[in-house]
């Protein structure tokens, strides 16, 4: 079988892929963290409209119950007092367009849209192997 001629650029492409992937997440972590902090600041300030503007469209759509608005619902949600990075906690994780930010009293999940990071889920508590249970988003 004559299989000798195989494209050498494969190795180059592989190395480039490795390099780009290992470094992809680092620059976005502070931006995602600030987005999570802005969300909590808005909630604690009673600014429901502003807080809803920082939610993903799906989370903002799913949040209201009955005839209430998103702004009313996000202030009603039982969100913990959390607005700053948790000391000694695991650092913010960014993988692709998804992020997990650990604040002083909460774990927040975010998704990156063209207009920036938006909160996919907040008020989240771990459940072992199961997905986190979240007060906002699911």
């Amino acid at each position: 079988m004559r299989w000798g001629a195989v494209a050498p650029p494969v190795a180059v492409v592989t190395i480039v892929a490795l390099a780009s992937l290992t470094g992809c997440a680092s620059g976005e972590a502070p931006t995602a963290q600030r987005a999570a902090e802005r969300f909590y600041s808005a909630v604690h300030a009673g600014q429901g409209e502003a807080a809803c503007g920082l939610l993903t469209p799906r989370a903002a759509e799913d949040l209201p119950l009955g005839g209430e608005s998103c702004a009313e619902a996000v202030l009603r949600a039982r969100l913990p007092a959390a607005d700053r990075p948790r000391p000694q906690a695991a650092p913010t994780q960014v993988w692709g367009d998804e992020a997990q930010v650990r604040l002083s009293g909460d774990t927040v999940f975010l998704h990156r849209f063209s207009r920036g990071w938006l909160v996919r889920a907040a008020g989240c508590t771990p459940r072992g192997e199961q997905p986190y249970r979240c007060e906002v988003g699911s």
Partner: peptide, 11 residues
């Protein structure tokens, strides 16, 4: 890990 986070799970 991207899929884990999208499903609200730890990376």
């Amino acid at each position: 890990n991207s899929e884990q986070l999208a499903q609200l799970q730890d990376p």
